[in-house]
Write a protein that binds this DNA or RNA. Sequence first.
DNA 1: ACATCCCGTTGACGGATGTCAAAGTCCTTT
DNA 2: AAAGGACTTTGACATCCGTCAACGGGATGT
Lengths: 228, 228
Amino acid sequence: MADMAKQLAGIPLFSGLLQAQYEALSRISLKRSFLKGERIFSEGDEGTGFYVVAGGRVKIFKVSMEGKEQILHLCRPGETFGEVSVFTGQGFPADAVAALPTTVLFFPRAAFISLIRQDPALALNMMAQLSKRLREFAGLIEDLSLKEVPGRLAKYLLYLGGLDRNDAVALDVSKGQLAALLGTIPETLSRILTKLNHQGLIRSQGAQIMILDRRGLEEIAQEGKRLP
Amino acid sequence: MADMAKQLAGIPLFSGLLQAQYEALSRISLKRSFLKGERIFSEGDEGTGFYVVAGGRVKIFKVSMEGKEQILHLCRPGETFGEVSVFTGQGFPADAVAALPTTVLFFPRAAFISLIRQDPALALNMMAQLSKRLREFAGLIEDLSLKEVPGRLAKYLLYLGGLDRNDAVALDVSKGQLAALLGTIPETLSRILTKLNHQGLIRSQGAQIMILDRRGLEEIAQEGKRLP
DNA sequence: ACATCCCGTTGACGGATGTCAAAGTCCTTT
DNA sequence: AAAGGACTTTGACATCCGTCAACGGGATGT
């Protein structure tokens, strides 16, 4: 139980809480594991609580009638998902599937809310979490509506390359999933990658991509410059 | 001061609080008014607090390099905006402009946070507010990515018509703004409205629109049926 | 080693939508 | 009433992107 508390302390949502809170949290939480591809919940399911990713990765997404999917978020360890329905009382707004072998902690709604009532720090953390997600979504909406696919891809590559100021980046998702993340389809993504290669902006080989011209990518990502 | 408290009680964010909280809220809030078209804040501005619409309407939006705008949300009386930067501590994630002559209440960040620490009900309300917005954004992302413009328009018309089960709806925004809300441009919106008229699904005349074929609109909105 | 399958790539094609230009309409102002 | 301006509509056009189809390659399992 003590190491459980230590594990919880490393999660942003639970940072800076009192010791008693960690014990309470570990008491109410349930550990669940999923195989890669296994569904965690579906859109519309009743939300009886929310989740924190302990290990693996969880894909939150919407699916169209024709089967095309738009990824809303890829949750990595320490991130939460399913919180929305805890506070609105409605069903989950999207689907959740394990994108890798995944372990999550589940926090039942009622018990968690009563903890929030007791500890304002937990409430503030949760609000920060929701706000961060809201900001991300606003960015995604902006990208989908105001940028073309090359712009979104360039932005993503720069994001990957900006993490460690490294020009050699490795895609951490399959290209099909990257397409769904960028709001397009694998064919289009493949064509644009080819163009970027041809233009000398990147050199890509499988999931390994070298950023050759940062400035060029920035022009595409920010100013919407066209690819010849 | 007493009527101020009464006014606050009508706002979802502040529902169900203790009397003392209403007094505290009115003490820390600032009333501000804006002319139609006046800017309330810009993306990136430091967020020193958040707002509640008292009267009028506030447009929250993103603008592309080329000047196209995507409306994220039209805030009506009782709704909040600018909360995200209160909890993330970063700048505002979008622009805010008064879409009508507008009055807002401004709540400075530090004072509001200290109120949250004192009243879990306020915290829970705020989380519900954030969650509701998150759900909306998820829907907008889904629409932008997975639906075509006719689908988004049909959904919007059905939304307007569904409020009072009335088949005679009146657009409450200009067509240019509606286009920005749907993630398109006025020309495209105009063409699609013409098509819907021609198809006998609606009969539109200026801002007045008669829904003639609900089922037909639903097919377009949900199943992505094409317009001939 | 071979077959199979999944993923990614490439090509041909069409449709939806943004761009540019111009005309038309409505409302406000003078 | 006339004039001006903003909003809306319509047309011609370009292009991005999704669809369909076929191919290639690497991984897995028999």
